[in-house]
Design a protein around this nucleic acid. Structure first.
Length: 564
RNA sequence: UGGGGUGUCGCCAAGCGGUAAGGCACAAGGUUUUGAUCCUUGCACACGUUGGUUCGAAUCCAGCCACCCCAGCCA
């Protein structure tokens, strides 16, 4: 099921209580600031795939624009060519789109502004607010001071404007090797805020850039670039995460020196953290590089591409982001909340089918071999518009091994020797005989079928258990990939030892299952519920007709398992 | 021992001086041909802590404590 490319307008405006950012924007709109205009941006660096944490930022930025009738840009913060590439650019675009947001014609790159950024640097130099520094990284660190001691001025701090201009242009022209010079903003080496101790704003990097090729060998730094990019795009509210709070004075300083006509307001919010997973790009990349998962799109990854492949819906992710809210307090959200949102959406939208994960043969001794019943079962218990599917009932069937116990635990409602159970949508059967092989392994069950119970409960008799089944000769063999959480520890980052030591060895178990015949032509990326088991999605890349592959998206709530 | 932040139920999170919203989780019932869904009910005399201001404080003030971020030529 490929997602309808819904545009922003298709996403309902938030019903959640206004968060602190929206309160600030409400005030701005009320006071006529920016003429009431609201313009945001989502600014990823293309150095990896987007993850669920980015979804929070995407929903916030695009959602805010939506709420205030404004617009939101997609801008790649591509100032460090060393870590970036086109694969990441493409993946990010696809993920934002998949989530349901539309940047229309507003796709930008910070690298679009390299010329303008260079001019601004010249302006700073001419104002005596920037200088070319020859300190090595090690020396610069020493000169910077510490958290409790002020820094010392670089020997180059008072270099003349003319010399600075000359040196900077030669940096640009490629006369110097990487690391020999930097351009620094001249602010305050004694500032208690270390970001203001003459931060580097340009460095030399003889590096090919995925957008600008080999045009540049000097690249601007984030702090210098971001505020100017925001201003050039007419951004009104620049939303970023908490770790940039200390950078805000630099953001403002830069724009103040330059006197640009637009001065966006930076507002910081807390990152999203979810338990039982890791969220840092460094670690996700490590999982990929060390082949601990099967690439960025592995269904166990918290990347949006991984979640998509797993079967998550964009709506579930959006609802989740709205549900957890936006604040400034660091939090660790339980995965259960994400899973709730997933089930909530899938329960309403996923058509039902039957799939036997661990097949156990059942022969109905009294059901005539030549007889069949063509049954019509609804695709959804509450949504008749989804229609019905056909399934043929036969003498030989398969049920799940977990639905039979020779020695049932108390409260067991499934099939037992001499016990009765309802076959979903069909008859009530009773187990008469258990067949085992030489090793004592159960190979087959012989049951009797109450022929008077199709579609009704005979003589007011009700059986407590209902189990699913597939017809033996007609069922379709499929591969089912059962996924579980990637980490066993609720906080892999905080756990003792390396986070990789907490990887769940059973996070992927492959099963050879049998699905009902109506699923024969299931297309890739189709979501459904296998009744009594969970929600599944045909693998976007590996599922082919004739060789279907289903990924477990999330199991149904299982209160029985919890009781055990 | 510098600077910037944050602390309300197990987890998120409203609250913005007038006497603690909501969701998730959990528990107990009910419905059910999915042990699912759905429905009902319960679940903070208490807001990190200690003082203060006030008729009244989670909300204002002060001190203290805890946790997070910052010393990349990363973002």
């Amino acid at each position: 099921m490929s997602e309808p490319t819904s545009n922003n307008a298709g996403i309902a405006a938030s019903a959640a209580p206004v968060n602190f950012i929206h309160q600030m924007i409400n005030d701005d709109v009320a006071s006529g600031k920016n003429q009431g205009r609201v313009h945001t941006r989502f600014p990823p660096e293309p150095n990896g795939y987007l993850h669920i944490g980015h979804a929070k930022s995407i929903c916030l930025n695009f959602g805010t624009a939506l709420k205030y009738n404004g617009v939101c840009n997609l801008r790649f913060d591509d100032t460090n060519p060393e870590k970036e590439n086109l694969e990441y650019v493409e993946s990010i675009k696809a993920s934002v789109q998949w989530l349901g947001f539309d940047w229309q014609d507003r796709l930008f790159y910070a690298s679009d502004y390299f010329d303008k950024l260079y001019e601004c640097a010249l302006t700073l130099i001419n104002q005596g607010k920037a200088y070319v520094c020859s300190l090595t990284p090690e020396q610069a660190r020493l000169y910077r001071g510490t958290l409790t001691e002020p820094g010392k001025p670089s020997p180059d701090r008072e270099r003349s404007v003319a010399d600075n201009l000359d040196l900077f242009s030669r940096m640009k022209n490629g006369e110097f090797a990487d690391g020999t010079y930097t351009l620094r903003a001249k602010i305050d080496m004694a500032s208690p805020n270390i970001n203001l101790r003459d931060p580097v704003i340009y460095r030399i990097r003889h590096q090919h850039h995925h957008q600008t090729g080999d045009k540049w060998c000097i690249y601007p730094m984030y702090d210098y670039t971001h505020c100017i990019s925001d201003a050039l795009e007419g951004i009104t509210h620049s939303l970023c995460t908490l770790e940039f709070e200390d950078h805000r004075p630099l953001y403002d300083w830069t724009l103040d020196q330059l006197g640009l006509p637009c001065h966006p307001q930076q507002i910081e919010f807390a990152r999203l953290n979810i338990n039982y997973t890791v969220m840092s790009k460094r670690k996700l990349k490590q999982l990929v590089d060390e082949k601990l998962v099967n690439g960025w799109t592995d269904p166990r990854m918290p990347t949006l591409e991984g979640m998509r492949r797993r079967g998550y819906t964009p709506a579930a992710i959006r609802n989740f982001c709205e549900m957890v809210g936006v604040t400034k307090s660091n939090s660790l959200v339980e995965v259960g909340q994400l899973e709730y949102c997933l089930r909530e959406d899938l329960d309403a939208t996923a058509p039902r089918a039957m799939c036997v994960l661990r097949p156990l043969k059942v022969v109905l001794s009294n059901y005539p071999a030549e007889q069949t019943d063509v049954l019509r079962l609804s695709r959804h218990p509450k949504d008749a518009s989804m229609g019905e599917r056909e399934i043929t009932f036969t003498r030989e069937l398969y049920i799940d091994r977990n639905d039979f116990e020779e020695v049932p635990p108390p409260g067991f409602k499934r099939l037992t020797v001499g016990g009765e159970v309802r076959l979903r949508g069909a008859y009530i059967i009773k187990c008469e005989q258990v067949i085992k092989d030489a090793n004592g392994v159960i190979t087959e069950l012989h049951c009797s079928c109450d022929m008077n119970t199709l579609g009704k409960n005979a003589e007011g008799r009700k059986v407590k258990g209902v189990i699913h089944w597939v017809p033996a000769a007609l069922a379709i063999p499929v591969e089912v990939r059962m996924y579980d959480r990637l980490f066993e520890h609720p906080a892999p980052d905080a756990a003792e030892g390396d986070y990789r030591d907490n990887i769940n060895k059973n996070s992927l178990v492959v099963l050879n299952a049998l699905v009902e015949p109506s699923m024969a032509n299931t297309p890739a990326e189709h979501r459904c519920q296998f009744e009594r088991e969970g929600y599944f999605c045909t693998d976007r890349f590996d599922s082919k007709s004739g060789a279907l592959v289903f990924n477990l998206t999330i199991g149904l709530k299982d209160t029985w398992a919890k009781q055990q």
